[in-house]
């Protein structure tokens, strides 16, 4: 089997318990290279727990999480220290409650995301301190990357403003741009459309679709907005009570009786209807 045909992310037998509470139980799924995979499910289904396991914020109780790069290298995320997951396994993430560096400018936010690269270029501070030219060049290149992503998310005019000054929707896009500046192979988005108005939500769809597959980028996302999920996902995994209850294409999920039951079970008829019809709740 060649590296190209193997999924970028393989989760196998993933279990996570907090004391007596089993948040995720024997979960297995995979995310294909160059595709958008969505993780959905009612509140408390364990989606964010899975995310935190994948991105190294939790150490799973059991199971394997493997990332396979284009060049054939693979990484066992369940046993890697948190910061290496971004640096070496090239998995970047955003947060459900936005975590920008509010007191830093947009440009600074995107430069912090390129920390490891710049740290090496500054010879771990020593070279930068005495002003070696290598660092200046690396920083200019980093600024160019930052500028590119600011243009992509339409925030280049505000590059020198504080990130905390941006409106909510812009902050969401900036967080995606920041994650992209780390040069990820797999981008994990935790509810990227939460709190966006319909127009911003449509723009987000456009952005994600344009990013998918670019330099082999794969996207894993958690989302409650079914309009977003059904429109952009290539593959959907449905969780309920920490277990996978269904997976497949948007069309398959829409008609899956288990999914409908799960969503009807949470007494949120609107969401259930949205799942089944693919409409915006």
């Amino acid at each position: 089997m060649t590296a190209g045909s193997r999924p970028i992310l393989e989760v196998d037998g993933l279990g996570m318990r907090f004391g007596g509470l089993v948040a995720v139980d024997g979960l297995a799924f995979s995310a294909q290279r160059g595709q958008i995979t969505a993780l959905i499910g009612p509140n408390g289904a364990g989606k964010t727990t899975v995310f935190n396991c994948v991105t190294g914020f939790y150490r799973p109780t059991s199971g394997r999480i493997t990332v396979q790069h284009d060049d054939g290298r693979s990484f066992a995320l369940q046993s890697m220290p948190g910061h290496r997951i971004c640096h070496q396994a090239k998995v970047a993430r955003t947060f459900q409650n936005i975590r920008l560096f509010a007191g830093m400018s947009l440009l600074e936010n995107l430069l912090v995301a390129q920390h490891n690269k710049l740290m090496r270029a500054s010879l771990f501070t020593v070279g930068g301190l005495i002003g070696l030219p290598g660092f200046a060049a690396a920083e200019r290149a980093a600024v160019e990357i930052a500028k590119h992503w600011l243009e992509r998310v339409g925030l280049v005019d505000r590059a020198d403003d504080a990130a905390g000054d941006l409106p909510y929707g812009d902050q969401r896009r900036l967080e995606i741009a920041r994650a992209m500046c780390t040069g990820p192979a797999l981008l994990c988005l935790d509810e990227p459309a939460a709190g966006l108005n319909p127009r911003e939500s449509r723009e987000l769809n456009q952005l994600l679709l344009s990013m998918r597959g670019e330099n082999g980028l794969s996207i894993l996302l958690i989302e409650h907005d079914m309009g977003v999920v059904m429109e952009i996902s290539d593959h959907i995994v449905v969780l309920d009570y920490g277990k996978k209850i269904a997976e497949g294409t948007p069309a398959q999920i829409r008609n899956d009786p288990a999914v409908i039951a799960a969503y009807l079970g949470v007494e949120d008829e609107e969401t259930a209807i949205a799942v089944t019809t693919g409409a915006r709740p």
Binding site: F57, H83, F95, R99, F101
Partner: peptide, 28 residues
Amino acid sequence: RLRRLPVGRAWEAMREDEIACRSLGINI
């Protein structure tokens, strides 16, 4: 000078949000 180097930006980023730093691959 340190403030303008990656290490200084990482300090300030850590002051702003340690968890976000970790998610960006910064060794806290």
